[in-house]
Nucleic acid binder design. Sequence first.
DNA 1: GCAAACAATGAATCTAGTTCACAAGACTGT
DNA 2: ACAGTCTTGTGAACTAGATTCATTGTTTGC
Lengths: 264, 264
Amino acid sequence: MAASDMGTRERRQRQVAEREQLFLNAARELVREDGLLKLQMSRVADRCEYAVGTLYLHFASKEDLLVALTTQNLREHAGLFRRVAQWNASTRDRMFAIGVADMIFVRRNPEHFRLAQYALCEVVWRAASARRREDLLAANQPIGAIVAGIVEEAVAAGDLELQRQTPQELATGLWSLCFGFHNLVHAEGVLEDFSIREPYVLMCRHLQHLLNGFGWRPLADPADKRALDALIKRICRDVFNDVCHAAPAAGAAPRAAATPRTAP
Amino acid sequence: MAASDMGTRERRQRQVAEREQLFLNAARELVREDGLLKLQMSRVADRCEYAVGTLYLHFASKEDLLVALTTQNLREHAGLFRRVAQWNASTRDRMFAIGVADMIFVRRNPEHFRLAQYALCEVVWRAASARRREDLLAANQPIGAIVAGIVEEAVAAGDLELQRQTPQELATGLWSLCFGFHNLVHAEGVLEDFSIREPYVLMCRHLQHLLNGFGWRPLADPADKRALDALIKRICRDVFNDVCHAAPAAGAAPRAAATPRTAP
DNA sequence: GCAAACAATGAATCTAGTTCACAAGACTGT
DNA sequence: ACAGTCTTGTGAACTAGATTCATTGTTTGC
């Protein structure tokens, strides 16, 4: 009795988890199809052939669902970073590869940045349930931790001096640069009159500049486009062989792939 | 007849513009009091003792109003940058002062970053009218232009080599770093377990690192906290004498000053 | 086989943003 | 001064879409 009880309870829980996946996948599809703007709870339920009420058994609100969606993306993001951490290369190359991972991640999840920007906004964040917020932070935690870990390793290996900073503090610099760059790229019009051709190559170059600024050895020459391309290609081959196809050449804004927009 | 006609039309226009200010100020107050989440169009109208319909004569939608509010902030932001551009100091110091200006601006407008984050989100951005979007971009334009201008000057003065980059491209690096840092600081919980003590001092240090990475002379030693503090103090005195009071010591997150939040 | 517990449902409710038919006031020409 | 016209302001009514909850169906335990 007790055993079968536990068995059925487990099965039930599994089914519920599966249904949650179903909802999340449907929501992601809808966001990719029509944009965040047009996401409707009733459509999500419809697409999964469940009643709205059922959807609300899983998610306390629309915001809750959006935060959950972001959390899923962050888990994939962390997965890519984890690969980099295990890559057998110099700490400098690994840190640079973190930037490449970021780039690949955004290309695979074109909706992510808009979504994250929205989900982390006060308005949405506070309307989500405490549990979802915690989940998101938990999914986010490794992202910072992995970066800080590489920093620590670099110090141990003598590639880098911290100079009174904590590894976390140093990591925020790299993080800000990438995060801010994504945000700029995705803020329509803001970069328009800057006529940036290949935004993500530029991001990588800035990353190299910042790493140089930190004195992270071996220093790189960010002006050497050939070396930069070769490094990116190598990273794609060694670390992200299965996930990055058209990587080195691709520097176009991911905007086109994201959601439909008003006339340019 | 024609003269008085023009006179009354001008007066009318002025009055309309004043009323728009009234609405925007009320909206800003409400956002500071209750947070972005609770902003209601009817409350804005109430506070100004006008009918909702009148409010809608000015703003096509709630999003429209929020974008307009952000635009106002950006104008103040650009104003601070303009002062820096006119400061009589080395290009390196001026570029660093841009970061300080950013810091001061955020302290004076604690709601700005949340607001901007929200307003630039696809969801809100696309729901605003084309005119408001253009206005925002126009208000934003000088911000990038001033930075690019300082870069150009630095090249002309021999303080910096561009190495195949455009001034705009280089500017994006600095911009991303600051923008990203603000976003990180304002994303509740994200920086929590990083235990960052004085976020904006850290931002300034990262800025110095990145400038060093660009090879922008004279190179600075970001580990020299004393020199950094002195520089910040000098900038506050020479450039922002009237607007920055408790500047050099203040590094606390502006979160507290912003909107009320759920239990920490 | 039946009652209690649990899960799913979707019509009804509710909230705020938005509209628009009408009223009040301002201007014009006689 | 006055009737007509045009502009501006109003707020009750409308609406979309998120959220709820009384009802109905399904499983579990005895």
